[in-house]
Measured scan of single mutants.
Amino acid sequence: MEVVDPQQLGMFTEGELMSVGMDTFIHRIDSTEVIYQPRRKRAKLIGKYLMGDLLGEGSYGKVKEVLDSETLCRRAVKILKKKKLRRIPNGEANVKKEIQLLRRLRHKNVIQLVDVLYNEEKQKMYMVMEYCVCGMQEMLDSVPEKRFPVCQAHGYFCQLIDGLEYLHSQGIVHKDIKPGNLLLTTGGTLKISDLGVAEALHPFAADDTCRTSQGSPAFQPPEIANGLDTFSGFKVDIWSAGVTLYNITTGLYPFEGDNIYKLFENIGKGSYAIPGDCGPPLSDLLKGMLEYEPAKRFSIRQIRQHSWFRKKHPPAEAPVPIPPSPDTKDRWRSMTVVPYLEDLHGADEDEDLFDIEDDIIYTQDFTVPGQVPEEEASHNGQRRGLPKAVCMNGTEAAQLSTKSRAEGRAPNPARKACSASSKIRRLSACKQQ
């Protein structure tokens, strides 16, 4: 084909351009004929944790799935940006308080904090938690009735009371019990989460009196709706648990309003109706937990002794299953770290194939690490110290990083047969305790 000078094309009309061969290198194709290559998922490591896909996002930050490269346990990490926390009232204080509380709590029905990582340079905090497959609110939203069968609701409620009793025994008032803060594992274990607005009572406090509340409006008791200066913290949790039980068994809320002012007005009056299909035992329990006067409201001991709580409820309806993943529609909620794991395991070791967030990740503290002497050669063979940054567990980050890069360049065919977990650990520049 004859090559045409581009400067001469402006002298031709459209018809003349076609005659000189423009149609031979300008093609129009339908979008259905285009085959897009999927974007390669680059592996990203935060300390010893391999990052997966997004699980959810809230006002405080994002939650992603991660894999512990040492234990191969599935975890969830809450990623918090200090810049964003400053824009939220009491944001930083709530996060630090939640970390302090979770560090000393150990119960099967309370979410466990596994690790805390802090990135000084990017001003990011990573709260590594045990993995929960789904939230209770997500399960309720997945069915038209917006409720659980009585047998399933009873099982979840009993676990909620177990976890709540443990928190109260530790002198902690949750203040925000609701389905949105109750998570579930694949085995059906309920976990109380989000202790950001919780309050730890003084060890020598005479009672459970509280003065502040930041919980969700629909789950607040009349004493808070009416603006009382002080109130019983434990009875606030009992009320919120009662509203939660009402919601998961009926699909409704005892109090509603077009806006928060109308909602608080209705809560302050204390008038509500219980659907007739709840039955006398459940209705009596709800009335005891939603008692207007805090002094007359049920205690956890009274809830445990109630006939509806103690009764064994046979399954009359099919239980609400864990819904498919909202993004991938995966009904099994498979591990989202698998594509990243395959990338590390299947590809040659190259620095361009993975990302390490930083050479140094500070753990379990908000301060910069200490310094240790770096050896410097002298005339008599002895070495003197220069400062060298280290990880919180004493690992020399720069030395590990250099060693990792040197190993990656060394030709050794046997290394390709290593397991995925050992490869992740070798790529991680800074081991965590």
Rank of each mutant, 00 (worst) to 15 (best):
A417P: 08
G163F: 00
S232P: 05
G279M: 05
V320M: 12
R147A: 04
Y131H: 08
F264W: 01
K269F: 04
S334A: 05
P149Y: 00
Y340S: 10
C391I: 06
L182V: 05
D330H: 05
Q399K: 04
L67Y: 01
V150T: 02
L55S: 03
P222R: 05
P280F: 06
E342F: 07
L195W: 04
S169P: 02
C132W: 00
R211A: 09
E33P: 11
S142H: 12
P323K: 14
E265Q: 04
S404K: 14
E396V: 13
A398F: 07
E342P: 13
S193W: 00
Y131Q: 00
Q112T: 09
A205S: 08
Q364C: 09
K235S: 15
A76V: 06
D176M: 00
K178P: 00
I111G: 02
C151H: 05
S334V: 10
K64A: 14
Q382C: 07
I322F: 09
L50G: 05
P149V: 03
V320T: 14
W332S: 08
K108V: 05
S232N: 09
Q123R: 01
Q137Y: 04
I360A: 14
M139I: 06
I267A: 06
N393P: 14
I88Y: 15
Y292R: 08
R333S: 14
M18R: 04
M51T: 08
P339D: 13
R415T: 05
E317H: 09
T209C: 07
P203H: 03
C151Y: 12
F231N: 15
E70G: 03
M139D: 00
K416C: 07
D208Q: 14
L72W: 07
G251A: 03
V368W: 04
G385W: 09
I356E: 15
L252Y: 01
V77Q: 03
D5H: 07
E265I: 11
T367V: 14
C132F: 01
D355A: 05
R384C: 07
Y36T: 06
V236F: 08
F148T: 00
K62T: 15
Q382M: 13
K96D: 09
R106F: 14
E130Q: 05
V34G: 07
A417V: 04
Q37I: 15
E317W: 15
N181Q: 03
R87Y: 14
R74S: 02
V77W: 04
R331W: 12
Q305W: 05
S419I: 08
E33N: 10
T402F: 08
R304S: 04
V128Y: 11
P6C: 07
P323D: 10
E223R: 05
A206R: 15
K78D: 00
H345V: 08
P339Q: 13
V133D: 13
Q364L: 10
P387A: 10
I88V: 04
M125G: 06
C210P: 08
P280S: 08
G370W: 11
D355V: 07
K96Y: 09
A316I: 10
E130I: 02
E138R: 00
F204H: 15
A206P: 09
N247Q: 08
G394R: 08
L67V: 05
K312F: 05
G15R: 11
K78C: 01
L341G: 12
V243I: 11
H174K: 01
S421Y: 15
E92S: 05
E291Q: 10
L117Q: 10
L344S: 12
Q382K: 07
H202W: 02
L353S: 15
D350N: 06
V66Y: 07
P323V: 06
C391M: 15
G251C: 00
T363H: 08
T13P: 14
F231G: 08
S216T: 04
K97C: 05
A417F: 07
P369S: 13
G370V: 03
L195E: 14
D343Q: 06
V173P: 01
P144E: 15
H345I: 12
P275T: 04
I356G: 12
E293D: 11
N119E: 06
D327S: 14
G15F: 06
W332R: 13
C158L: 04
V338C: 05
P411R: 05
K83E: 12
I88W: 02
Y340L: 14
D207E: 12
R40L: 04
S213I: 05
V34L: 07
I248Y: 01
F298P: 08
R147T: 00
G58Y: 00
I177P: 01
G10A: 11
T185Y: 05
G15L: 12
K44T: 04
S421T: 07
I267P: 01
S378K: 15
Y131M: 00
G385R: 07
I424S: 11
T402V: 03
R310D: 14
L285G: 00
H174G: 02
F148A: 01
Q399N: 11
M335S: 13
K403Y: 14
D258M: 03
Y118A: 03
T402W: 12
K178A: 04
P411S: 09
T212N: 02
E199Q: 05
V128S: 02
H174A: 01
V338G: 08
K84E: 04
R405T: 09
L140R: 02
K122F: 09
E396L: 07
Y246F: 03
L195D: 15
L245G: 00
G381D: 14
W239V: 00
S142R: 04
Q37C: 01
S307V: 10
K81Q: 04
A389R: 14
L113C: 08
L54P: 08
P149M: 06
K175Q: 08
K96S: 07
V372H: 15
S401R: 07
L55V: 03
E396T: 07
K423G: 14
E92F: 14
D194V: 00
P144H: 02
L182G: 02
Q37M: 08
L290C: 06
L353A: 14
T250Y: 10
S334H: 06
P387H: 12
D343C: 12
I424A: 14
K97L: 04
D68S: 09
A318T: 08
G155R: 03
S69M: 03
A429I: 15
V320C: 04
P294V: 10
F366D: 14
G279N: 14
P221R: 01
F219C: 02
E349I: 06
D237E: 05
T250A: 06
R331A: 00
D327H: 08
H27Q: 04
Q305F: 13
K423W: 12
T230W: 08
L341I: 14
L17D: 15
V236S: 11
T244F: 03
L427Y: 04
I224V: 04
K82T: 14
F255R: 03
D352Q: 04
Q371V: 12
Y340T: 14
L102H: 15
R211H: 10
M127P: 04
Q399R: 04
T244C: 10
G370P: 14
G227Q: 09
L72M: 03
V173Q: 12
E293F: 06
S240M: 05
G135P: 15
I192C: 12
E138C: 02
P89Y: 03
S419A: 11
M51H: 15
Q137H: 05
E145F: 05
P275D: 15
L50I: 15
K191C: 01
G251I: 02
R331Y: 10
D327L: 14
C132A: 12
A93L: 07
S59H: 07
L386T: 14
D330Q: 01
E120C: 02
H202M: 08
L85Y: 01
D355I: 08
E256Q: 12
E138A: 07
D5N: 09
S216G: 05
P339V: 03
K287S: 05
P280A: 05
H379M: 13
K403N: 11
Y156C: 01
K81G: 06
M22Y: 14
K191R: 11
G180R: 05
D350I: 09
T249M: 12
D30A: 15
I79M: 02
D277A: 04
T24V: 04
K48V: 09
Q220D: 03
S428T: 14
S334D: 12
H174L: 01
A429G: 07
T336E: 15
R425T: 13
F309N: 00
A76R: 00
S325E: 09
T336N: 04
G56E: 07
E375C: 10
Q170L: 05
P339S: 11
A347M: 13
K312G: 15
P321I: 13
R383D: 12
V150P: 06
A316R: 05
L72G: 12
E98A: 02
L184H: 05
P217H: 02
P315N: 13
I424Q: 13
L140H: 00
Y118R: 06
G394C: 09
L252S: 12
G408E: 13
R40I: 15
L341Q: 14
E357D: 03
Q159I: 02
N266H: 09
L72K: 06
K97N: 08
I35P: 15
Y362G: 07
N412W: 04
D343N: 06
E223C: 06
Q37S: 10
V20D: 14
V110L: 09
V77R: 02
L245A: 01
S216K: 00
P280Q: 11
S307A: 12
R415D: 12
R384D: 08
L201N: 08
A420R: 13
K146S: 10
